[in-house]
Write a protein that binds this DNA or RNA. Sequence first.
RNA 1: GCCCCUGUAGCUCAGCGGAUAGAGCAGCUGCCUUCUAAGCAGUCGGUCGUAGGUUCGAGUCCUACCGGGGGCGCCA
Length: 540
Amino acid sequence: MAIADRLLTLVHTTAQDVFAALRANPTPLQAVVVEEPSIADHGDYATNAAMVLAKELGAPPRVIAEQLAEGLRADAMVDRVTIAGPGFLNFWIAPDALARELVTLLDRGVEYFRPDIGHGATVQVEFVSANPTGPLHVGNGWLATYGDALSRLLEFVNYRVTREYYVNDTGGQIRQLGASIIAVRSGAEVPEGGYRGEYISDLALRYHGSDDVVEAGSWAVPIILELIRATLVSLGIEMDSWFSQASIEESGDVALVVARLDATGATYQRDGALWFASERFGDSRDRVMRKSNGDFTYLAGDIAYHYNKLVIRSFSLVIDVLGADHHGQVASMMAAIRALGIDEHRLEIKLGQMVSLLEQGQAVKFSKRAGTAIPLDWLIQELGRDATRLLILSSSIDRASQIDLVQAKAQSMENPVYYVQYAYARIAALLRNVASRQIRVEVGSSDALAGLNHPRELALMKDLLRLESVIVRAVEERAPHKIVGWLMQMASDFHGFYHDCPVITAEPSVRDARLTLARAAQLALGVALDLLGVTPPEEM
RNA sequence: GCCCCUGUAGCUCAGCGGAUAGAGCAGCUGCCUUCUAAGCAGUCGGUCGUAGGUUCGAGUCCUACCGGGGGCGCCA
């Protein structure tokens, strides 16, 4: 258990003692938290327990705080407790307790940072799923990287993850694609709503089939998918599964699912079409399942696809990563899940807000059809894989990012990714130097490590002990960008340590303790970088 | 009109209901004879969109308003 969690437990038990002493009934303590103050004078950790209890007990916070402090001081883990402000309890952790924790960390290795949240459950993350009508653009890169980092996080906390790309290989846009290729081949204008761009010209040169738009479109899909796959690989992303929309339609599952909705009385006929009464299940209006011409709608196919994921393939959890332009589908899909009697908590839909490019202060929207989309390949080539990933992962997907490409490129050598990677590389260099100088290192007994009490060393240790809880939060909130926040702090603290605390030239006991700390830091940096899919470089 | 996201430093963005709101970039000033200066230290820069409310305590929660983005098809 992490130190903060152990402290919270300690605060809880001490609170029970206070209740008993006051002959008061114990009350729930959910509001009690242990946190790390941003100000060093406020201790290594702090709790609001006295203020919460004061409310429950109707006594002044500082009086309660005195009683709590009494009990807390008795614990060996706690070095010092002070009462401050409106009734905060500030703790300082005993150096030997930190040292023991560091020993445990090194003993357990990567596992030290791994909370078992998933318990081996299966989860499918569906992301990218861009129509196979052209190369990925920069906007696709955002959600692709988010989806991959989320998948890495879930894998780390013991989910069995399947990364899936839903291939919309049927329908109107495939006909448009075919029509565009045929038009360019015959030297005609690309039709209204068609696709433009160099790749269309390339395809037109290679296409030797008939003038049937479906044939031409279907012919092009696998070629374009291969381009997409290659782009993803260059971003460090490999899908486990490419799921064809056409295959769902051919399987008969669409009819099956519509029949199931029918059987539960959730559908009705109107104007020659079959409707799903989705409003009864929380949608803003009802939706058509089968058009008056007999074809199923996209939504019907999409419901069948989700039925396939949740029932036929029976993933415990399904996460759809979609662009905010798919917001309109969410309520309909959730309504269908409820109508089919599936536990709605098994489907999560994460909406990523739109990304826009800034060109001379003006926002430029992506349009594949108009040919104004900036290719993702271009961005990766300009910035490199690691800088691209970190740029994308440093902010929340709830925010509509604006990226100034000129600035992004100009800053590529100043990208924060190098700051973080440099910390890792510096440790690698340290360890190489130790090896090449044939220094014998006695790795860390907790006694030796208790000598680590320089402020830089303490800051580093606290970062190490915090990583697990950061990972928990990042997973729970589906927010990989929280890992970036930790990495920046960790890198900053490491560079400060490196600057102020010589390692190899220090006397042997100090040197060995610092080397041990550096090793732990490298381990943690490696875990965090790996969660983001960013390379941990041995040298720079 | 209704629904979702959002508004924090010049720019791009972090920020668990807690104490004196942070980082990177841009600007200014120092620090390489010393384990990698892709670094460290300092400095400049803020009515956290506005107004109410809840709370011992609000950038964070609630309401209204203002601004920005997206969505509301028998398209996919």
